[in-house]
Simulated scan of single mutants.
Amino acid sequence: MSIGAGIALIVIGAILAFAVDLPNNYVDLTTIGYIMMGAGAIVFIIGLVLMVRRRQTDTVTRTEGVGDARVTRSTTRSSGDDLV
């Protein structure tokens, strides 16, 4: 979710900085565009770090015997170092 929000901020900031040329005496849209692009880059990087940092896989195996049930659950967590 935050990766998409970062991309959206970058795109909106680029539109404000480079494409909009409205006469305005109160607000500098170019500066606001640059600020939004910087914030979008920060949000995008934070989203990537959080996505890579926490990956978890749960596997549940159910084996039934002659009268009892046995459930085996194994949890595997991998860090971002494995992906590089």
Rank of each mutant, 00 (worst) to 15 (best):
A17R: 03
D58G: 05
A17H: 06
Q56P: 02
L22V: 15
T31L: 12
A41S: 09
T75W: 08
E64L: 10
A41T: 05
A14W: 00
V11F: 06
M37D: 02
M1F: 09
Y34L: 14
M1A: 14
I10S: 07
D21V: 11
I46L: 03
L9T: 03
V43N: 04
V11M: 08
I15C: 03
I3D: 03
L22Y: 06
D82T: 08
G40D: 00
I45N: 02
I7A: 06
D28K: 15
T30C: 01
N24C: 08
M51Y: 12
R77F: 11
R70L: 14
R55N: 14
M1W: 05
A41D: 02
A5N: 09
L22I: 15
Q56M: 14
G38K: 02
A17S: 08
A69W: 07
G38D: 03
V27D: 04
T76D: 08
V66R: 11
I32K: 09
D82P: 00
T76W: 07
T30K: 04
F44Q: 02
V27K: 01
I35M: 13
G33I: 00
T59G: 09
L48F: 07
G4C: 05
G47C: 03
I7R: 01
M36T: 03
L83Y: 07
V49W: 05
G38T: 05
F18A: 01
V60N: 07
G38C: 05
D58N: 10
V43W: 02
I45T: 12
L50R: 15
V84T: 08
V27I: 15
I15E: 05
V66D: 13
G80K: 08
V84A: 11
S2V: 04
R62S: 13
E64Y: 06
M37Y: 00
G33E: 01
G6R: 00
T57A: 12
L48C: 08
G65H: 04
T72F: 12
D58E: 13
G38L: 12
A14I: 01
V49D: 09
A19V: 06
S78W: 12
